[in-house]
């Protein structure tokens, strides 16, 4: 009886470690397949004549069509930051530091991170669903049979569009957010406009704050676009499969952004 109990305990523990190992192997295999996909899409001599119109169209779909949500979100986040900051700072007579507080928060963290999250929800999920549907309706297979590589024709222009547009959207987000902060801090709450801009200018470093924020957004753009394209490309070609792939894109991209943000912040700002 005791021996059987001990045996079942050992089996349970071994099974637990086995499932962890299997999960790690499955994850590594997925990363390998995703890398192969990206390698196939990006490595090789680009055909500018055919590639430019495709890229141009995707910039519109992925970037321009995300502008509204990014700008509106940026405006409100900047306004809320200024309002909350003012409420705390005014007690200490430090409301003139509202400019750098809003600017640094947006440029270092909120710009890249929130834009990344919005981009994953707005453009990433759309990329996954589109490519998943192309797979389920055999459009990718028919492309292959017409001797047109879907990795070069479908994946590559979408990747470059996402990779280039997201950092630009993050910059627009931060810029609009700072104007939102100005709107609340200066135009509504009455702090001095000159101080708002002057202290911001003196406290914010181009190389450390602005560029690190841009680097963060470039990393997030790479990861989010990669995840979105791979999830669509590898989705099970059913309505259920596409639904799951779209959800996976948003969840995994969001977690990747938040995790990577911590790692990048440690490297960039901890000293």
């Amino acid at each position: 009886m005791v021996a059987r109990f001990i045996q079942s305990m050992i089996d349970g523990v071994l099974g637990f470690f086995q499932s962890i190992g299997a999960g790690i192997f499955a994850w590594l295999a997925g990363v390998g397949r995703a890398t192969m996909m990206l390698f196939g899409a990006l490595v090789g001599v680009p055909n500018i004549r055919k590639g430019w119109p495709l890229f141009y169209k995707q910039v519109y779909v992925v970037g321009v069509q995300s502008l509204t949500i990014v700008m509106v979100s940026g405006l409100f986040i900047g306004m809320v930051l200024a309002l909350q900051g003012y409420i705390v700072m005014v007690d200490y007579g430090a409301e003139d530091s509202l400019g750098p507080m809003v600017g640094l928060s947006l440029l270092r963290e909120l710009g890249p991170v929130v834009t990344g999250l919005l981009f994953a929800g707005r453009a990433g999920s759309a990329l996954t669903a589109e490519i998943g549907l192309m797979r389920s309706t055999e459009q990718l297979s028919s492309m292959e049979m017409m001797a047109v590589d879907p990795l070069r024709r479908v994946i590559a222009p979408r990747f470059w569009a996402g990779f280039i547009c997201m950092p630009l959207l993050a910059m627009i987000f931060s810029t609009v957010g700072i104007y939102g902060g100005h709107l609340v801090g200066v135009d509504w709450l009455g702090i001095d406009g000159g101080n708002f801009w002057a202290i911001m200018q003196s406290k914010i470093s181009w190389s450390e704050d602005v560029m690190n924020g841009v680097i963060k957004s470039i990393v997030f753009a790479f990861v989010v676009t990669w995840i979105a394209l791979y999830k669509g490309y590898s989705s099970v070609p059913t309505s259920d499969g596409i639904s799951k792939a779209t959800t996976d894109t948003v969840v995994q991209s969001s977690l990747a952004i938040l995790g990577l943000d911590f790692v990048l912040t440690v490297f960039m700002f901890s000293s």
Binding site: K50, T137, E138, Q139, S141, S142, M145, M146, A147
Partner: peptide, 27 residues
């Protein structure tokens, strides 16, 4: 070689003309 898929597999973002022109303009 060429293949006619069971679903037709036409590119849904292109007109009939562009679907037929696709392979010609690609190659």
């Amino acid at each position: 070689m060429s293949m006619l898929f069971q679903s037709g597999a036409l590119f849904t973002d292109m007109s009939v003309f562009d679907n037929v022109a696709f392979a010609i303009s690609e190659h």
